[in-house]
Design a binder for these strands. Structure first.
Lengths: 339, 339
DNA sequence: CTGAAAGCGCTTACAG
DNA sequence: CTGAAAGCGCTTACAG
């Protein structure tokens, strides 16, 4: 249409330069007019370019199996897009160990990936790492946790504050006046785990917004995650607060509290996070009443897709993808597991 | 590797015949050995074949806007796979009118589609229609409702019985003894809408399984969906049952009951189905406590993908895809809307 | 700055 | 029954 060769059209489409101003304008005009979009199939077939994605997330075998799920979602996505010729490298780190993180982060940079999928769970270390990504021109997608002030390509995860707010609503359903609630933070690094703090905040906000609900909230921090220590700490709390009608655990480690309650034969409303395998039996037997789910599989899936869209298909989606906050009970558990 | 031409390899890969037994075996052996899988990209690029999908679902502008959502999901899927050269034709029918359905169903057959995405909401008519699909060799995917005994390619939707069961659990949270519950079926064709009956069943099952909960369930059927008639019927019910503490509406028409309750300034626990626009303001203002969602967008999305996988990519997924039963409240509404 | 040519991994007539 | 050739819509050197 423009009276130029297909090679020239290719140069303007991909802004590879070496085109005279006149030709450039002429071609661009026609591209606009006929809404020309290059065929992705033909393009990736002809292009010899291979992409390398690096996935930098916590270990799947620490004291909670949470990180298995995002991995499942990533593998699903990678299988679907296998024909685009993408190489993926997984790098896992200990989420409580900055040294382990830095080691893997350096590896990531050295492999010169085209894109990075990254869970920035350690705040300070993540900020530092991301600097060298920017220096090396490596675009990165955040999943699970967000650091708003950085220049990430996309964030995929939950609104943590709102999830705590929801938990409070579920906690308060049919509650009797004068009830006491125990909030149990179980984490080695509570100050560094910002999303846990946000969940606490949301939980408290709810009761501030609903002063009519007559409850008393007591919070304890358990900084050692092993079961004996948790049992001991809970025992002390029950001595101190006599009238506990509900427990909120703002992390996937709710199964540790469930283990204690089961042992003590206490039936108290219990709400926690995440459909990890350790929590399932307690949801089934009624020890845990509600689990709030972060859609971890989708986090992984859409994380990979965000990289694909940016690097391969050249079309970006939403910058922040807030996933729905799923409520899981004994009664709807089954189909969340199968899906 | 087999010492034959690429044309011959193509013949055995796609079982197009015209290959001698010896060559066939030789090639198949090597295909196995090297795990040869034809490149989908190159394949669809070279193939001039275009696919035609027909989408046969109810109108989006009847007395509930439910069917907009699956349409959204379908369009999302179609946009993603646009490079595969697929033509889509939408045929809508009035879900309460068998004649309208048959008219569109005939059109569907006449357009000789390669695949059909279909919501079999009218039981008898659907069974009849599907027969001619089979005669014409048209594979079909069910969404939203299932007819188990037919030979569908895939079903994508919810376990209706279990969703009613879950609704009952939510209804009973913190309920006082001696409560009365009203179940309100609003449908012109309750007997033909099997999934509504299944939801009723599940709801009742829960209380049978939990005899400790002291409630009384009363069911009314409202066969005319206009608001005045609904108001009138509810008025009568409230005269008859004095102690109603909860209302369950096993369909998206829960907003009609909410409208009545608002008008009468009654605050009663209200549970219904589907995040349709008519229900949203009532969830926000607290008139509706819980909505059970069927993931309608996903129904449409995965419906299209099931056809793509079967016809284009030649790899089938699960036959029955039961979607999770989402619980939606005022507090987690926002991110279900955005997602 | 521009065009012609080869090639990506397939499919599809066509000739024998 | 089998192979050679053209072509799908691009990208990528290469020559000028």
């Amino acid at each position: 249409l423009a009276g130029v060769s297909i090679g020239t059209v290719d140069r303007v489409i991909h802004q590879r330069g070496q085109v005279s101003g006149d030709t450039l304008k002429k071609v661009m005009k026609i591209v606009e007019k006929v809404h020309f979009r290059p065929d992705v199939l033909a393009s990736t077939l002809a292009s010899k370019k291979k992409f390398r994605f690096i996935i930098l997330i916590p270990d799947c075998h620490d004291d909670s199996s949470f990180w298995k799920a995002p991995l499942t979602g990533m593998k699903k996505a990678i299988a679907e897009i296998s024909h685009f010729g993408i190489e993926t490298i997984y790098l896992h780190f200990d989420q409580f160990d900055p040294v382990s993180f830095q080691h893997q982060a350096n590896k990531a940079i050295r492999s010169k990936p085209d894109g990075l999928l990254f869970a920035p769970v350690q705040y300070l270390q993540s900020v530092e790492f991301v600097k060298s990504c920017t220096e090396n021109n490596i675009p990165y997608v955040f999943i699970n946790s967000n650091i708003e002030e950085l220049d990430y390509l996309s964030y995929i995860g939950q609104d943590s504050i709102q999830s705590g707010y929801l938990a409070a609503k579920l906690m308060s359903l049919g509650f009797v006046a004068g009830s006491e609630i125990l909030v149990v933070n179980i984490s080695k690094q509570i100050a560094n785990h910002r999303h846990i703090l946000k969940r606490n905040k949301g939980f408290e906000n709810y009761f501030e917004d609903h002063p009519g609900i007559d409850v008393n909230i007591n919070t304890i921090n358990i900084e050692n995650t092993n079961q004996e220590y948790v049992d001991h700490s809970l025992g002390k709390a029950f001595m101190k607060f006599k009238n506990i009608n509900g427990i909120f655990v703002p992390s996937s480690r709710v199964f540790k509290v469930a283990t204690y309650l089961d042992k003590m034969k206490k039936k108290i409303r219990l709400i926690g996070y995440d459909l990890i395998e350790e929590n399932i039996p307690f949801l089934e037997d009624g020890t845990i009443d509600f689990l709030i789910s972060q859609k971890p599989v989708e986090q992984g899936y859409f994380g990979i897709m965000a990289l694909l869209n940016h690097l391969v298909l050249k079309k970006d989606g939403k910058k922040n993808l807030y996933l729905p906050i799923d409520i899981i009970t004994k009664e709807n558990l089954k189909y969340y597991l199968e899906y």
